[in-house]
């Protein structure tokens, strides 16, 4: 039986008086590829941040790698170090993630914080530059990178420490179609032998490529949890959780051609 990566039981969390998570319970095993689906404001990013010990449950219990995810536990340097070594989060906004003066410094940041020696850091940087095809921008400051390059560098800056668990917050947000396909290709090709990948997204098109299981969040609660393909084909669930919508149009302005499509993710389906 595979070990547990995350175990959440009746977890609640609120930003001041605004509830973000309300009685969330789920379990993720090591090696699973999971998509957290939900419309804007459904609680995906908060949940992801909680899984990365950046905010903590107000009520309920949360554990990661069998250790409690609490503020008190993370105050301990040894626990914090062990956790950061094994779990990596790629933020939605690359301008938040990329805070170093150059791409090289960005890649070096994580390994240096984890105490790697410098020759090992240099070797790892060289490998990541080649793997993510970003050698040509290694000396550039992040503000001179395109959106796609920023996402690649952000992903490389987390994967360089080879975390066992990779958390991704809206990896395809604000990318043009080519950069999006490129990034999804990278994620799909990513050697996942044993690596747990949890991706928060509302981009249903990418789910089949990057996840085997999907958890749907709606208004801070879990609305569904199951195999990704089953979730993607549950039209009523997706419509209810605002992940798809009906769009009516006509061809050439002719009223007789008027018909409806369901949009996002699973291709057009006649309504």
């Amino acid at each position: 039986m595979m070990a547990t990566a995350f175990e959440f039981k009746d977890v609640t969390f609120a930003y001041r008086s605004h509830p973000a998570l309300n009685g969330v319970s789920f379990s993720i095993r090591l090696g699973e590829r999971v998509a957290l689906l939900g419309a804007n404001g459904s609680g995906k990013s908060t949940l992801l941040r909680m899984m990365d010990a950046l905010c903590f449950a107000a009520e309920g219990t949360a554990t990661a790698l069998s250790a409690p995810l609490t503020e008190a536990a993370m105050q301990d340097d040894r626990t914090n170090f062990a956790f950061r070594r094994r779990v990596g989060l790629v933020f939605q906004n690359p301008d938040v993630q990329l805070f170093n003066p150059t791409v090289m410094d960005e890649l070096a940041f994580g390994p240096l914080q984890l105490g790697w020696d410098k020759p090992k850091v240099r070797d790892a940087i060289a490998a990541m530059l080649a793997r993510f095809n970003i050698e040509q921008v290694k000396d550039r400051p992040p503000h001179r990178l395109s959106g796609g390059e920023k996402k690649r560098v952000a992903l490389a800056s987390v994967l360089i420490t080879e975390p066992e668990i990779l958390l991704l917050d809206e990896p395809t947000a604000a990318l043009d179609p080519a950069s999006r396909a490129d990034l999804v290709g990278l994620l799909a090709r990513e050697p996942v032998a044993g690596r747990t990948v949890v991706t928060a997204t509302h981009d249903l098109d990418i789910v089949e490529d990057i996840a085997d299981r999907a958890i749907v969040l709606s208004e801070g609660r879990i609305a569904a949890d199951g195999p990704a393909l089953d979730i993607l084909h549950d039209i009523e669930l997706l419509r209810r959780t605002h992940l798809i919508f009906e769009h009516r149009h006509s061809h050439g302005g002719h009223p007789s051609t008027a018909h409806g499509h369901l949009h996002s993710g699973i291709g057009p389906a006649e309504a």
Partner: peptide, 14 residues
């Protein structure tokens, strides 16, 4: 984001 990548108050540079 810095904390998420292991920052504990001391910056190390290459």
């Amino acid at each position: 984001a810095m904390i998420a990548r292991g920052y504990r108050g001391e910056v190390r540079l290459l």
